[in-house]
């Protein structure tokens, strides 16, 4: 399977980190003060990716269904933490809803794709499940953070309108619905744009990887198509879930909007 892969030697690998000197020198000459961040990012990328590599080697060799599921769960937990830290709006208690929406969107869709389309043997094969679920998680994670920011910013900008709606007897859901629509629409857009540009402007990362690994480009293209479709479904599901799980945080239990003045 990986017969065509050309391994990278240890010396060459560390020599490649010399490429970070480009960013380092720019930062130094322009006094950006980011030398430290550049060094940390480089080390993190090395450590995290190599660790993931060794983990996968171990996982492929000794895989069992519960071990694979534990790894997927840990990935979802990390994605939750990163998504929460990316939200700029002040909203409390986001961990649980984000975790729930990431898990139920990416994991469900990833399982559908792996079991329904790829059909590996055994069904919990880490070689297919971990990378596919990882790609779904990565996309939904970014989309979720963007959707939450958009949702709460839009709610605040519609505070007067919602006040009037609620005074007329609207439920929180009725009052918030236009904002939920806007947030979901905005969250779906980037995935659609990626799909539209795929194959023309760039070869998406996964397809490039498979081609570099010596796979037939047409097989790689088929995988990439499935992955793009999966990402579009997973992000849409995640955004819809997170919007409906969180919009009520800006409403009191009597159903009026907690605008900036009374929050």
């Amino acid at each position: 399977m990986e017969g065509g892969v050309i391994d990278i030697g240890t010396v060459e690998l560390f020599a490649a980190s010399g490429l970070m000197l480009v960013a380092g020198i720019v930062s130094w000459r322009l006094s950006l003060g980011q030398e430290r961040d550049i060094a940390i990012a480089t080390v993190r990328a090395f450590v995290q990716l190599l660790a993931m590599g060794f983990l996968l080697v171990y996982l492929f060799r000794y895989q069992s269904w519960w071990l694979v599921l534990a790894v997927l769960l840990a990935m979802a937990l990390c994605a939750t933490q990163i998504a929460v830290s990316r939200v700029k709006q002040k909203v409390g208690g986001l961990h649980l809803p984000i975790f729930a929406s990431l898990l139920s969107s990416s994991m469900v869709i990833a399982f559908v794709v792996v079991e329904g389309v790829i059909q590996p043997d055994p069904w919990y094969s880490a070689r297919q499940l971990v990378p596919i679920a990882g790609m779904a998680l990565g996309n939904t994670m970014s989309a979720t953070a963007v959707a939450i920011d958009r949702l709460f910013a839009d709610l605040d900008s519609r505070a007067d309108e919602m006040f009037a709606l609620i005074a007329l007897g609207a439920t929180p859901r009725e009052a918030a619905f236009p904002s939920i629509k806007a947030a979901v629409g905005a969250g779906i857009l980037p995935t659609l744009a990626t799909m539209g540009a795929a194959g023309i402007v760039q070869i998406p990362g996964m397809m490039s990887g498979q081609i570099l690994a010596g796979a037939d480009p047409v097989v790689a293209a088929k995988y990439q198509i499935v992955v793009l479709l999966m990402m579009s479904a997973a992000t849409t599901l995640a955004i819809v879930l997170i919007c409906f799980l969180t919009f009520r945080r800006r409403f009191s239990k009597e159903g009026y909007y907690l605008d900036a003045g009374i929050r």
Binding site: D160, A167, L168, G169, T171
Partner: peptide
């Protein structure tokens, strides 16, 4: 919501 329909505030 029923209360607010019957006791209606105009902001």
């Amino acid at each position: 919501q029923e209360w607010r329909r019957r006791v209606c505030l105009v902001p």
